[in-house]
Design a protein around this nucleic acid. Structure first.
Lengths: 250, 250
DNA sequence: AAGTGGTCTAGACCACTCA
DNA sequence: GAGTGGTCTAGACCACTTA
């Protein structure tokens, strides 16, 4: 029960990380600037290699820095794409033959790759939402400025879209929503569920995410005016690349 | 230029992490279960302490596990609160003297603490949005099941709310939106901007976040029917505690 | 070729939890 | 008091980047 007047100072690696963070947030170190590396920190603070690494790991895990093998650790910025919820899905957008995504990138060039269109048995969750045991699944990856920013997987009830262009790689002008319209099933109502978490190794690889970057996961369900669910779209976004915007009335 | 038939196997710590992750995702290890600790991994795989720690750090940084000092590393679940965007702010909610938050917790008890109400000079960003140089600032922390889940900071143009209960700790029945109504400034339109990132040390402390937990940051601006901005609310949510839901029409 | 981060070993002492 | 995770040292070899 001895009184120990220990000052409860944070550990060395934390104090070093705090110092570097302050220099980043104050603007002294700007986006893309090189941070002092492991060797520099070892010399400057007279610490061991592992301790210097630990300090840098703090900033990397906070998403404020990104390591480049063989080169150094660099300050990292937040330059997001603005993604509109309510507004971007307005009928004017897709009713006139334009893809939804256009509204997202605001003129920045984007590309789609790794497109895969297959017929599958629905998982329990998907079957519950779409009220269908068999689904057409469209998987693809979106990139902006040749940087991957989003993975998307769309599910459609097989019996509704069988034979339409939705089952093909190229869905034609206006995308899948225009095709749903052709089928007499235009989406009228949307529900988006949004959460955030750290990526798994697969997502991390496909989106080329540095450590410390969470993903935003959006599950969007599209319903016809009659309340029939016609699409479930699961999107995984690089959180460093996006800001979501939702507008609504009281 | 020698051809090296190296199999590019992932490093030891990654393979161990992959194995543990698989056991978690398969359901073999359930929420709250104890993972093999550092000593167990060292013995089982004949590796050094640091390597075992590194393997566990992967899962901790992915948010799949949470370390308890002196006890062990435990599997961690995702049991979110559902937060409604459009629906929860409908006029019926706050027009009848109920606080907005009620709709969030679905009957689960919640508490507010660390309430702070002060008059401040607006930062540049806040001044831009609210078109006001001086603002009343309301800071508070929300907890559910005595666990902190959200930090919120609301800004009000000082000249609009001066003298109202908005400048007091207790805003009375219906909360600040009811008071804005009393002032003839009922919110009619909302914009929410949503992003996700890793928390800083301050947020990490106030929300008691384990490693590997991102935060969701929501900036909500409330406008009157005339388009006058009357509130800017910056919310920082524990991403492991929330799912956001937005409903809207095409 | 020199410097960087990535991985790993083999120790050490500490604070904390739990039976 | 035994076991746990938290911090730290002092080395080592590797792959990669940059010049």
């Amino acid at each position: 029960m001895s009184e120990s007047p220990v000052s409860h100072e944070p550990p060395i690696y934390r104090r070093i990380a705090d110092g570097l963070r302050a220099r980043i947030l104050s603007g002294e170190l700007r986006d893309g600037d090189r941070l002092p590396g492991e060797n520099a920190l070892m010399a400057e603070h007279a610490i061991a290699r592992a301790t210097a690494r630990q300090a840098l790991a703090v900033l990397i895990n906070e998403g404020l820095a990104v390591p480049k093998r063989g080169s150094g650790v660099y300050v990292r910025l937040f330059k997001p794409i603005r993604r509109h919820g309510s507004r971007r899905l307005s009928r004017e957008q897709w009713g006139q033959g334009r893809a939804i995504w256009d509204a997202d990138t605001r003129g920045r060039p984007f590309t789609v790759d790794r497109v895969e269109v297959v017929l599958e048995r629905a998982t329990e969750e998907v079957a519950d939402v779409l009220e269908s045991g068999e689904v057409w699944v469209r998987r693809r990856r979106y990139s902006v400025d040749s940087r991957p920013v989003q993975l998307a997987t769309s599910y459609f009830p097989a019996h509704l879209v069988q034979g339409s262009a939705i089952t093909l790689a190229d869905t034609g002008p206006g995308g899948v929503y225009a095709r749903l319209g052709d089928l007499g099933l235009p989406p009228a109502h949307f529900t988006e569920e949004v959460r955030a978490r750290m990526p798994g190794p697969r997502e991390s690889g496909l989106l080329d995410l540095p450590g410390g970057t969470p993903v935003i996961v959006i599950a969007r369900t599209a319903y016809t005016s009659g309340g029939l669910p016609v699409e479930l779209n699961e999107m995984v976004l690089d959180s460093a690349a996006y800001v979501l915007q939702y507008d609504f009335d009281a």
